[in-house]
Design a protein around this nucleic acid. Structure first.
Lengths: 289, 289
DNA sequence: CACAATTACGAGGGTCGTAAAAATG
DNA sequence: CATTTTTACGACCCTCGTAATTGTG
């Protein structure tokens, strides 16, 4: 019976050129390898090596066998990897979101409902989110708008309203409301990992220089110590509190408001119904729309 | 360590749907198969089966594993087949010829020069012979004409001249020479496996009915007992003798004469030089052309 | 009670390593 | 004489089969 370990040994010999070298690489004794290859030749009924008393090397049939063996081994490795990846995907909930705020509510909910599952989340633009939902890369996604499509189940569950966070010294800090264009041109502090908001910010404030901070603590530090404008929202303030020594001024553009929608494949609605029920309890009034 | 026998067992379970059935198909006990699959799950670190106390069936990861296992097994089978086929091809000299007569001289020569090699020969038209020579299906071929091509080494080595074999009772049996058209329309006895001569016969004698005999002895019997014309040649008479009670009349058409050429790949000329030398000794005067 | 799957235990086959032999440069 | 391969022999691992257990329809 042909076995994989024989093929691995064969390819090792092809790489090392010598039995003893391959044996060492395989953590095996030379005699064991010698006998193993003799047995391989028996099962194939083909001589794979030119043997002289003192040296051995692959003949042409052996070279062919090595090439074929590599393919078989590669395929076996692929099998292991694919099965493991599939298994992992079965054990993890993958969430795609256009922005971080919805995840702050959703991830605790998911981990509570599926305590044995791992949770992975990604921030992407709506378009890659949708294609990921189609391919099954995500169990569900969060978009900043509704999507009417019979293939998907979609409902709104949370609203985010953006504000400028300004120091008292800022000339516009007394405003009741501001538009993006009012601040456009000033340098603005931003956190990375804010999803589609970064695109909104760049589009609405094309003249502004964005000082993007990767580290959350660095960002907080800069907000406190600088006079630069930054952004907060109703949701960020719910989770992190109102920034100290700052004035919070609503942004009046319609783009400063996002209505987050939960989307899953229609075929998965039933399986996800426990989660969907819990998500709807977060904001009963929105869900009734 | 993943092994092929485990994959075979896995696919057998997928086909049978039950452990006991698969065990029987594999000529194995159920407990052995049960443990083997547990070990497979260990090495993959993935659960492949839904287990109830009394029944077992593949889960989704298992289904994926089965599909992948089938591919691996198929590839391993292909490897065995390809290596064996290559080995066979290394141990056989494959000759392609447009007619049988050249083989009568060549095959003994080849088997004498390469006593350990098997010999396989095929009769084909020149075109498939050439493509077979290019692909390596033949080590060398015999064409009824020359071929000037730098990729091939080509030389003439034998001439075949066709004759009509007629019974004394035939009206034309006293002729010194005949053309194909003189006999066209009469029924003619033929052997199968005469290569390109069959095409020549059909083209030059389109009105003739050919009575093709597959069996050599049947053919000889019919030649003796019937008054039908048939063909012989200088070469067939050298090997089988002049037919008794028959008159042998040369055919005067140029198509009744073939100059057989030996062709091999130019790159193989050196390797085949012992054979080529021997073939040239068969007819020194031709080889000097 | 027949059937299916798992666990326990002993037997056997196969691969392994060590030791020894043969051959080469 | 060091290196490489092959053969011989004994040890051990691992798979196998039988038997027993549990659970189901």
């Amino acid at each position: 019976m042909l076995e994989l370990y024989q093929l691995i040994q064969l390819t090792a010999i092809a790489e090392c050129g010598t039995l003893s070298g391959a044996a060492e690489q395989l953590h095996l004794s030379q005699p064991a390898l010698s006998r193993s290859m003799q047995k391989l030749e028996d099962t194939l009924q083909v001589t794979l090596f030119d043997r002289q008393k003192n040296k051995i090397h692959l003949n042409r049939a052996g070279e062919l066998a090595v090439a074929q063996a590599r393919r078989v081994i590669q395929q076996a490795d692929d099998m292991v990897e694919q099965v493991r990846a599939f298994d992992r995907s079965q054990r993890t909930v993958s969430i795609g979101s256009c922005a971080p705020a919805p995840l702050w509510e959703l991830m605790p909910l998911v981990s509570q409902l599926y305590p044995e599952m791992a949770i992975s989340s990604e921030l992407k633009e709506p378009e890659p989110l949708l294609s990921g939902l189609k391919t099954g890369a995500y169990q569900f996604i969060i978009l900043p708008h509704a999507l009417e499509d019979p293939d998907f189940f979609c409902f709104p569950f949370e609203k985010e309203q953006l504000y400028f966070s300004l120091p008292p010294s800022h000339p516009l800090s007394a405003s009741k409301g501001l538009f993006f264009k009012d601040i456009d041109g000033e340098s603005v502090l931003l956190l990375s990992q804010i999803g589609f908001w970064y695109r909104v910010c760049r589009q609405k404030m094309p003249l502004t220089r964005t000082l993007v901070q990767t580290n959350q603590e660095d960002f907080q530090e800069l907000v406190q110590s600088s006079a630069l404008p930054c952004f907060v929202s109703n949701l960020s303030m719910r989770w992190s509190g109102k920034p100290e020594n700052r004035l919070v001024i609503p942004i009046l553009d319609p783009e400063a408001t996002a209505m987050y929608h939960f989307l899953c494949k229609a075929e998965n609605k039933k399986k996800l119904s426990p989660l969907i029920q819990r998500v709807k309890t977060l904001s009963p009034q929105l869900s009734q729309l």
